[in-house]
């Protein structure tokens, strides 16, 4: 029904997507901080799901259901960074502390005395 080239491409995309999903979840479990965990999931897990959807596009062809999964890829690439940004802002407003040595952009570093003196 589907050609051999199509089957090989779909298999490769499924394997790549599985790898990225695995990387994303390992990052979610192992990284130390909510900001670092978000960094792992919002990029790696999104790439994994997008790769699976791209495999579906190759399988079904560029019309009908394949086009729907292309729309899904575009939607994921819009929403995943937006969601991660909103959650990180909420965490920072809640007062979840940063990891040692990290600062909010644009503020005086709390740990760096030289930079603080220069700012005064």
């Amino acid at each position: 029904m589907i050609s051999t080239v199509q089957a090989v491409v779909v298999t490769a995309l499924v394997v790549v997507g599985s790898f990225f999903l695995l990387v994303g979840t390992v990052g979610l479990l192992r990284l130390p901080n909510v900001y670092n965990r978000m960094h792992a999931t919002s990029k790696a897990a999104t790439l994994g799901a997008s790769s699976m959807l791209l495999a579906t596009t190759v399988y079904y062809g560029p019309v009908g259901d394949g086009l729907t999964s292309l729309v899904g890829i575009v939607f994921l690439f819009f929403t995943a960074p937006t969601g991660a940004h909103v959650i990180s802002r909420a965490a920072q407003k809640m007062g979840v502390p940063f990891r040692e040595g990290a600062d909010w952009p644009g503020t005086v570093p709390m740990h760096d005395e030289d930079a603080r003196r220069d700012d005064d």
């Binding site: 909510v34 999931t41 919002s42 899904g72």
Partner: peptide, 11 residues
């Protein structure tokens, strides 16, 4: 973040 990851995986 964990729930969002579950959602992406279910996709």
């Amino acid at each position: 973040v964990g729930l969002e990851t579950i959602g992406t995986n279910v996709v």
